[in-house]
Design a protein around this nucleic acid. Structure first.
Lengths: 353, 353
DNA sequence: TTGTATGCGTTATCAA
DNA sequence: TTGATAACGCATACAA
């Protein structure tokens, strides 16, 4: 200890049974009422709704509150109202960098609007996810589900209680925020075609992934338009390691360009290919998906279709908070644009015209 | 809407003023009491403390609770007890990958012990941090401060109210969890020395950073021990860009090896050096710090001193939760070991014996 | 072991 | 515009 206590007779052990209040404890509206010489209910009004109290008593109360260093007790407030100024976010995997931006986006717009973010992880399990969601529903005003694993019906059941917004998946009758892959994929495929590629491979993600299906659809559509041949290659898992493992299959397709379900696959694939002596992009072009943190750490830096995850998080939070204030549409789909980020891992084949 | 409502007279708009309870609302201990034919207080006892009720009424109550799909109302519980089963985590910057692992570690051990994580960001501002911390203190049972920017005194003041654990900084009289840099730096420097390096540069982090100072101390000590000459180079900011900018100064030192304050600096430095035609590690060895996500995406993959951030987060959460149960030491320092992760960016100089 | 009574801090309803 | 008072759901001394 370098500093003497400024008040209180002794250190307050946090192990005490009673609520840790040294001496008098936190100020309540009663304390303010006493100081300001008004009724507690008047204090409550003055502090919650601005206009329902006379200007001078308002000031009286505000001064008293400031003097007493008053802080509302959110729990006491939550009891009668049911509102907590809190919203939950459940992500499938905190380890996955994809979610970092989502978390950040949600957190940022949350604090901006005076809401607190509560975070939970489903560990990729639908059951864990549902449990976590149920728990959160009791404490939070609303919920954001990022890449949920549970059934549509479970999600809709949750939403009967309080507002729920879904990210990265489209669920009928729910507010959903999803990246619109068409633009970004279109740009990527056109770029590849312009560089003379005739055949490209798509390395797919998990079979059950909603997004992977969308991306494959997008690739097919864009390739048809640009008259490229598209072949699909399955991966074992959507990780760097999965990318390494899929290299052999990719080579077997004789494609000169690859678009992967996500950046991790692209990075692993590129590493493996380079380790085998192939030059990127001189002998093969590689395009990732998402533009996660670190996508530009590679040599060459990874060309990728950027998924605006931060915007997704922010958009979902905005929508949810609007809903909580009775302002937004109760369902629909918010599509955020994807775009090609052209870096070094894609380009013209060496020796092609 | 694809599915009819199963109960309730009409859709319950979330915008309703009253607590969103369709019809009868969530079950309370009173409902359980009625079903089980006992007094509400008995229900409370049965559900909170296991042993204080007879076996058969216990079962009676549990059955009724299950049947009614009872969920405790955390706010109602928090009001009399002051406890919320919630703990806060404040990080300086959600963007910074350093914190990802900390968040994950804390979240994981939190849920393991039935605590919910509440996340906030200080945006690198001491003032914002203090505000966020104060807010959290009113709702959470305890707080974890990761790389706090505020003064020691502010931290201690916070800790008078409820338990606070600090990560990445040592504050007198507080429980602190910090990576012990000595082992990792020692390994790095010895590895460099064994590869024939005689002079190394340390690229420092922010001037005010507590950790940067520790790391520089560690480098000096280890270099003295291994008879290496160590020079210090200042960076403008601890980012990839900062690493690029510092390349010129690093070259000016004529050092053949570099250890940077963090991985981001190392990656930027390596990119800039390689862009200038230097071979890594043939002409210069680069060692980063932290082993963040993506450190192995580079070519060559980055040698780095791993900071066990996940363990820090988990350790801090464990300590905090212990404190909340009156089990742990109220202060002290938990040091978690760092270690060298030898990858491709460091090694022997080309042409050296 | 179980029931009774009261308080936690706030909002909301009703009068004044 | 303000004051009195009843919930909100749970925990806990205290009494039985």
């Amino acid at each position: 200890m370098t500093e003497p206590k400024t008040h209180g007779p002794a250190a307050t052990p946090h192990t005490a049974r009673k609520p840790a209040r040294d001496g008098k404890g936190n100020a309540t509206i009663y304390d303010i009422a006493k100081v300001a010489g008004v009724n507690p209910s008047t204090v409550s009004r003055a502090l919650s709704k601005p206009g329902r109290v006379s200007a001078k008593t308002q000031k009286l109360i505000e001064d008293a509150a400031a003097e007493l260093n008053y802080q509302v007790n959110p729990f006491a407030r939550a009891l009668p109202t049911g509102r907590t100024n809190t919203f939950g976010l459940i992500v499938a995997d905190i380890t996955n960098p994809t979610f970092f931006d989502i978390i950040r986006g949600a957190q940022t717009t949350g604090t901006l609007r005076d809401y607190t973010l509560v975070l939970a992880e489903s560990a990729e399990s639908a059951a864990t996810e549902l449990t976590a969601a149920r728990r959160m529903m009791t404490t939070a005003d609303g919920l954001i589900l990022a890449s949920p694993r549970m059934d549509d019906d479970d999600i809709r059941a949750l939403a009967r209680d309080k507002p729920v917004v879904v990210i990265n998946r489209e669920v009928e009758g729910m507010p959903c925020v999803i990246p619109d892959v068409r633009k970004g994929i279109g740009e990527a495929v056109r770029s590849l075609a312009a560089n003379g590629h005739k055949k490209m491979a798509f390395v797919a993600g998990p079979a059950r992934s909603w997004m992977s299906a969308r991306r494959w659809e997008g690739v097919q559509a864009a390739c048809e338009w640009s008259r490229l041949e598209a072949v699909r290659v399955e991966s074992t898992k959507p990780t760097v390691d999965g990318g390494r493992q899929v290299a052999r299959d990719v080579l077997a397709t004789n494609a000169t360009a690859v678009l992967t379900y996500n950046d991790l696959l692209a990075i692993g694939l590129m590493q493996e290919l380079q380790a085998g002596g192939m030059a990127v992009p001189d002998q093969i072009s590689i395009v990732g998906f998402d533009d996660i943190f670190g996508a530009d750490f590679t040599t060459p830096p990874l060309t990728t279709v950027r998924s605006p995850l931060g915007e997704c998080g922010a958009g979902a939070a905005t929508w949810l908070l609007d809903l909580l204030q009775g302002k937004g549409e109760p369902d629909g789909t918010l599509r955020v644009e994807t775009e090609l980020v052209l870096r070094g891992s894609s380009g013209r084949l060496l020796g092609s015209t």
